[in-house]
Computed example of a mutant assay.
Amino acid sequence: MRHLAIVAAGIAVTVLLTGCGAGDAGQRPAPKSKSGTAVTPKSVGAFEVEAALKNADPAPYSAHITSESYLGSTLGLVMTGRMNLNGSAPTGKMTLKTSDSAPEGQAVNAETILLENATYTRTLDDDGTAGEWQRAGLDSAGAGVADYGAYAQLLLDLGPKAQKGSEEMDGAPTYRLSGKLTQDHLRAVDRRLYDRMRSTGTEEFDCDVWVNEVGRVVRFEQWMKASGSSAHNVVTLKNFSAPVPVSAPE
């Protein structure tokens, strides 16, 4: 279990910061809201997404993040917690839990602390008992990881075809951008995923982002194929506030 928790922590960093890691672009299902219902374009609260991204506050901030990773239509891993973004490197605290469909012996229930130079992870038992913290270093590629705003800008740069219009999410106006991103797009923005795409021969993947009125990405979706199966990552961000303290466990 302890080894699986360390592996899961690595998955968490990969999904949250660089998306899936392998395969060709997969077929995309219709975008879903957090309630599971389809998100449809609305004219209410329309705004200029280019201006929103341009004028977004560059100062560091934190957000509550939930990440769901699917293999096909099966939910595999759920991560939730608060992350600091827009700083020199993302930091935060997350809990990781595999779905009930995880094979026996491969289930993970753990928490991880992400620092600029390392992650700390420990297992959590159903009775609340926690294991010992295990430290794992981050490779040097992590320093160049982009935040979701960079993905939004990549999609915006694709031109009018990527601009899908205003949509309401959680009762607030957002603007949806959608398109295919290639290795070349990520070369200067997300070096870790760029290297993984090159090593696996992945040419492109489908990506959607939803941007709010102040230029923050509130939802990120990605579709790829891994080991011949379609993979889908869904990341939601909310409750934006000032950065929160994050330190190594004692």
Rank of each mutant, 00 (worst) to 15 (best):
A51Y: 04
A52F: 04
A52N: 04
K54Y: 06
K54C: 10
D57S: 05
P58I: 00
A59H: 06
A59V: 01
P60G: 00
A63S: 12
I65P: 01
T66Q: 11
T66D: 05
T66V: 08
T66Y: 00
E68I: 11
E68W: 06
Y70L: 11
G72I: 05
G72L: 08
L75P: 02
L77Q: 06
L77D: 00
M79Q: 10
T80L: 00
R82E: 04
M83T: 07
N84V: 02
N86G: 10
N86Y: 07
N86V: 08
G87W: 06
A89Q: 15
G92W: 01
G92Y: 06
K93Y: 08
T95H: 09
T95Y: 06
L96C: 06
K97R: 14
P103C: 03
E104F: 11
G105P: 08
Q106N: 04
V108A: 06
I113W: 12
I113K: 09
L114Q: 14
L115A: 13
E116H: 15
E116N: 13
E116Y: 08
N117G: 10
A118L: 13
T119S: 12
T121Q: 11
T121M: 13
R122I: 07
L124I: 15
L124T: 08
L124M: 09
L124F: 07
D125Q: 10
D125R: 14
D126Q: 10
D126C: 00
D127G: 10
E132V: 08
Q134A: 13
R135T: 15
A136E: 09
A136Y: 11
G137A: 12
D139H: 12
D139R: 03
D139F: 05
D139Y: 10
G142M: 11
A143K: 15
G144K: 07
V145A: 13
D147K: 00
D147V: 08
D147E: 08
D147N: 11
Y148S: 13
A150I: 00
A152M: 04
A152P: 02
A152R: 06
Q153A: 03
L155A: 06
D157L: 00
D157A: 14
L158P: 02
L158F: 00
L158V: 00
P160I: 02
P160H: 04
K161S: 07
A162M: 02
Q163G: 01
K164D: 09
K164R: 14
E168S: 10
E168T: 09
D170Y: 03
D170F: 01
